[in-house]
Amino acid sequence: MLRILQTDIGSVITARAGSAVTSIVAGAAGDNAVVNGLSIDRAALGLPASALVSLLFTATLGAGKTLSIGAYKVQDSADGAAWADFASFGPAGVVATATGSGQVTGKVCLTGARRYVRVVFQPDLSAADTDTAQLVAAWSFGGFDSLPSPT
């Protein structure tokens, strides 16, 4: 369903952190490693039916070096412990080729998802030892049976 809203968007969505801030250094621990996001209890939010997943990043890169993000996905779980892939967003590919910041986003229909969800992503710096990046996942949940309570 598509709605054009001329109102406060904050009254119809609920935003949540999707991961801790992940800092990586090229060629060091964390570079090209899978990041499992935070477990989100959909029942505590009112079982939203849709979400926008955002991977926000900032990077300091040498000339000609890149920050890439492989396939990122949403996993679901009945108990918050045993996870299975629910939706995939394909590789984002190279997301930065110069020092700067940006974001990668994907929409997901949560109809049929189990109680808990999390984001999984894999950042990769192309340099050997000097480039750095910080990434964090964020959720914007919507599609509630009733409007979310203000927090």
Rank of each mutant, 00 (worst) to 15 (best):
V12G: 06
A82P: 00
P91M: 11
D76S: 07
K65Q: 15
Y72P: 01
A17I: 14
S19I: 05
A29C: 07
V104N: 06
G37E: 01
A26H: 02
I40T: 00
V12H: 10
A33K: 06
L55Y: 07
T60R: 11
S54M: 15
G64Q: 09
I9F: 12
V94A: 07
A33M: 09
A96W: 08
A20Q: 08
L61D: 00
T60F: 09
G70E: 10
A49R: 14
I9R: 11
G100Q: 05
V34Q: 11
T99V: 08
G90L: 03
G80Q: 00
A20W: 00
D79T: 04
K73D: 10
V94E: 01
P48L: 10
A15L: 15
T58I: 12
G100L: 05
I69Y: 00
L52G: 11
G27R: 01
A87S: 05
A15Q: 11
I24M: 07
D41W: 03
G30V: 03
T99S: 12
V25Q: 15
D8Y: 11
V12A: 13
A49N: 13
A78S: 12
D31K: 09
K65A: 15
K73V: 12
T22H: 08
A81C: 09
A29D: 05
A87I: 02
T14P: 06
I4L: 15
D41C: 02
S50R: 08
D41F: 04
L38D: 00
D85H: 02
V95F: 07
T7N: 15
G93M: 12
A15D: 08
S19A: 08
S39H: 09
T22C: 12
A96Q: 09
T60V: 13
G62S: 15
G90P: 00
G80A: 06
L67S: 13
T99P: 01
Y72H: 14
W83Q: 09
V74R: 05
D79E: 07
K73E: 13
A87Q: 00
F86D: 01
A26K: 05
N32I: 08
A49D: 10
A63R: 06
S54H: 11
S77K: 02
V21K: 14
G30D: 04
A78Y: 02
I4Y: 05
G100I: 06
P48C: 04
N36R: 12
S101G: 15
W83M: 11
V94F: 03
G102H: 08
G90S: 02
A78R: 09
A78D: 04
S88L: 11
S68I: 06
A28E: 08
D31A: 04
A59L: 09
I24G: 03
S88Q: 04
L38V: 02
A43Q: 13
G46D: 03
F89I: 06
D76M: 12
S11I: 01
T14G: 03
G62A: 15
A33W: 04
D31W: 07
S54V: 14
S23Y: 13
I9D: 00
V12C: 13
L55S: 07
T22L: 13
A78Q: 09
A92E: 03
V21W: 14
G46R: 07
A63E: 04
G37L: 06
G27I: 04
S50Q: 01
V95Q: 04
